[in-house]
Amino acid sequence: MPAKDLKIIIADDDSTTCSVLRLLLREHDYSVLGEAHDGERAVELCLLHQPDIAFLDIEMPKLSGHEAARKIKEGAPDVGIIIVSALPTLENVQKSLEAGAAGFVVKPFNAMKVMDAIGKCVRHRKTAAR
């Protein structure tokens, strides 16, 4: 699937992180459908828009990224989840995978790490669809 055809939701309680990620994604011709600043809103946006990928911060108000990922996967199993965190502990990575994430990006991130995570997520979705 070409980059410009991917639809993405961003969820992070830090508005600077959202802005940087949004600009980075748009620079690479990705379509950002919406942004959420808490886990509940992230779930709502994902169930409403059915994006190809959702970037979820782990630590957000109302629902953590892990909790939001589980709810998104229940209601919209085709959404690819990429967890974003400043705490790349083994426990966080394991919890992310258990919640259904196909990728994990460590803050502060750079363009290469984000693009790599998107590529892995797309490949994961194609494999899961078979």
Rank of each mutant, 00 (worst) to 15 (best):
G75C: 04
P51T: 07
I82F: 01
H28I: 07
R26D: 08
S85C: 04
G119P: 10
P51F: 06
G119F: 12
F109E: 12
A42L: 08
P2D: 15
L21R: 10
Q50D: 09
E74T: 06
L33R: 10
K7H: 14
A69E: 02
A68F: 01
E27L: 13
S85G: 03
Y30Q: 09
S19Q: 13
M1T: 14
L23V: 08
A101L: 05
I9H: 07
G75Y: 05
Q50G: 03
L6A: 12
R130K: 15
D78I: 00
V43D: 09
K73W: 01
A68H: 02
M1V: 14
A128R: 15
D12K: 11
A76P: 01
A69H: 03
E74I: 05
D12L: 09
L47Y: 04
V105F: 05
T17V: 15
A36Q: 05
L87T: 06
L97S: 02
T16Y: 08
P108K: 13
I81S: 01
A69Y: 03
F109Q: 12
V32G: 04
E44A: 12
Y30H: 14
V114T: 13
D38S: 07
M60P: 05
D14I: 13
S31E: 15
E67C: 01
L47A: 08
I118V: 15
K126P: 00
L45M: 12
G119I: 12
I118T: 13
K120C: 10
E27H: 14
K113P: 00
L56S: 07
D116F: 14
H37N: 06
I8R: 09
V84C: 10
I9P: 07
T16Q: 09
T16G: 08
K107E: 07
M60D: 05
D78E: 12
D14G: 05
A128M: 14
L63C: 03
G103N: 04
L87I: 05
L90F: 02
D57P: 07
V79L: 01
L21W: 07
D57W: 09
S85E: 04
S15R: 13
I10L: 11
R70N: 00
N92W: 02
V43W: 11
A111Q: 15
S85Y: 04
M60H: 07
F55T: 10
G119C: 11
Q94E: 10
M60G: 07
T127K: 15
I53P: 04
L23D: 13
K120M: 13
I9G: 05
V43F: 11
H124Y: 14
K107C: 08
V114N: 09
Q50L: 12
R125F: 02
G100C: 03
L21A: 06
E27A: 14
K113T: 15
I118N: 10
A99R: 02
A117K: 10
K73V: 03
